[in-house]
């Protein structure tokens, strides 16, 4: 098969703004499921609410576009009723970490056998750019007009602390690496969490001095640091540049999982 066969071509072009990273994340996820050789009839995509959560609507499999924050609750139901199905969850930073925060940590604790792809654009994109739990300090949003004064969640650390079996982070610029990480996630029994730092040019870039899509991509590219390099700098006691985030595999372990395919 090819990714074309996983898409609902009749629904394209999609509703995302020009330059929105969500479309890229869909490409990478479909390339990953295609590489797994899964059957469309045995694969289910779920999501909550948000721009990111509209992704399953463009995919040619059974899917559930659920209520805000609850995709993982629905995914738990799907997995326990039909553990033979492959389950992939698309979510956003607001969907996963704000309203859906408890579902997230408990799905990780149970180590539910699903793969969660979070499109983290550090903002509520769909509703007009309100701050989310991942909006970085200092960032302008419609709810933080003078710059956010709160610390932000590191979603990967949350997933690791709560018990997920596989955790990785990449960006919408690192398309090949991201696809590989999603494949790793799909292969891992238990909860696989892949955070994708992505661009929302409309509601984040424009209010944060990144007018062009290319400015946002440049930001992602230049602030991403490979995990080994980060660890080396820390070990050597060297300073980490402001705004740096790690990319790569962050944990892989073998805790008991729930809902694994028989």
């Amino acid at each position: 098969m090819s990714t074309t066969e996983w898409r609902r071509e009749d629904r394209l072009p999609h509703i995302y703004c020009s330059g929105c990273g969500n479309g890229t994340v869909i490409n990478c996820t479909l390339a990953a499921v295609d590489e797994m050789g899964w059957k469309r009839e045995e694969t289910v995509f779920l999501s909550g609410i948000g721009c990111s959560s509209r992704a399953p609507g463009y995919i040619n499999t059974d899917s559930l576009h659920t209520t805000h924050g609850r995709a993982l609750a629905f995914a738990t139901g799907v997995k326990l009723a039909r553990p033979d199905l492959h389950v992939v969850v698309f979510t956003g930073d607001g969907d996963l970490a704000a309203i859906g925060g408890n579902h997230f940590i408990h799905a990780c604790r149970r180590n539910l056998d699903v793969t969660v792809v979070c499109m983290n654009n550090q903002i509520y994109g769909m509703t007009g750019g309100q701050g989310s739990p991942t909006t970085p300090p200092g960032a302008i949003s419609t709810t933080t007009p003078y710059g956010s004064s709160e610390p932000a969640f590191d979603l990967t650390e949350l997933a690791i602390a709560a018990g997920a079996n596989y955790v990785a982070r990449w960006t919408s610029y690192h398309v090949k690496e991201l696809t590989k990480a999603i494949v790793e996630g799909l292969q891992t029994p238990g909860l696989a969490f892949i955070e994708v730092r992505t661009q929302c040019p409309t509601n984040y870039g424009r209010s944060n001095k990144m007018r062009e899509v290319s400015d946002m991509i440049e930001y992602l590219r230049s602030h991403a640091m490979l995990v080994p390099k980060y660890n080396r700098l820390i070990a050597e006691g060297k300073p980490i540049p402001e705004g740096t985030f790690t990319v790569g595999e962050l944990i892989r372990r073998n805790r008991p999982a729930m809902g694994v395919r028989p």
């Binding site: 898409r7 394209l12 072009p13 999609h14 995302y16 020009s18 330059g19 929105c20 990273g21 969500n22 479309g23 890229t24 490409n27 990478c28 390339a31 919408s172 610029y173 398309v175 090949k176 696809t179």
Partner: peptide, 11 residues
């Protein structure tokens, strides 16, 4: 295939 992969609009 990097262009095709990153193209958010499958174009």
């Amino acid at each position: 295939g990097v262009c095709q992969m990153i193209c958010p609009d499958q174009a």
